[in-house]
Design a protein around this nucleic acid. Structure first.
Length: 156
DNA sequence: GCCAACGTTGGC
DNA sequence: GCCAACGTTGGC
């Protein structure tokens, strides 16, 4: 089992939105970065857990816990002609972008704010804190996962 | 709105 | 294959 951090702008799609999807979950579509794609395509397994991180908003931080709920499959938005995520070089035979579905796993009692993450002992190496880090999906070490859960008051 | 970081693009 | 220019991200 691996652990991850998924970034999303809550104005666009928030942890509450994911929770509202219930067991249906949500395709993590629109990722157009190769490293983030590779994480989904090559390294994720059904049942992996991840933090849902709110970015570009008044209160950036970890808002909840999600679960990877599907195997990787082609991101359908790459085929939507005229759509925001259309990729003219992608074909059904050779899709360029792969994604997984995620679903709500567990609420956390309160948002763990970015500045708390930054000042917490044991979280110094989290990739989200790296200056200029723009990856929308980053791996999280098991120790880091447990530390965040403890700080956020989650039984893990 | 600013600015630093950094991935991508495209000319050579 | 190099590298400058450009666009995007994201915290502040």
């Amino acid at each position: 089992m691996k652990y991850w951090l998924f970034k999303s702008e809550p104005d666009v799609f928030s942890f509450a939105d994911l929770k509202a999807r219930g067991k249906t979950g949500e395709p993590w579509s629109g990722v157009r970065n190769y490293l983030a794609r590779n994480y989904m395509r090559d390294e994720m397994s059904v049942g992996d857990l991840g933090f849902f991180y709110h970015s570009s908003c008044p209160e950036p931080g970890i808002a909840g816990i999600l679960k990877v709920s599907s195997k990787p499959y082609p991101d359908p938005t790459q085929f939507e002609v005229g759509g925001e995520y259309f990729d003219e070089k992608a074909t059904a035979e050779h899709p360029r972008w792969m994604l997984v579905d995620v679903q709500f796993h567990k609420a956390i009692p309160r948002l763990l704010a970015l500045d708390e993450i930054r000042s917490a002992k044991g979280l110094e190496d989290m990739l989200i804190l790296r200056k200029g880090n723009r990856l929308s999906i980053t791996p999280v070490a098991e120790e880091e996962f447990r530390t965040v859960c403890r700080l956020a008051g989650v039984q893990s």
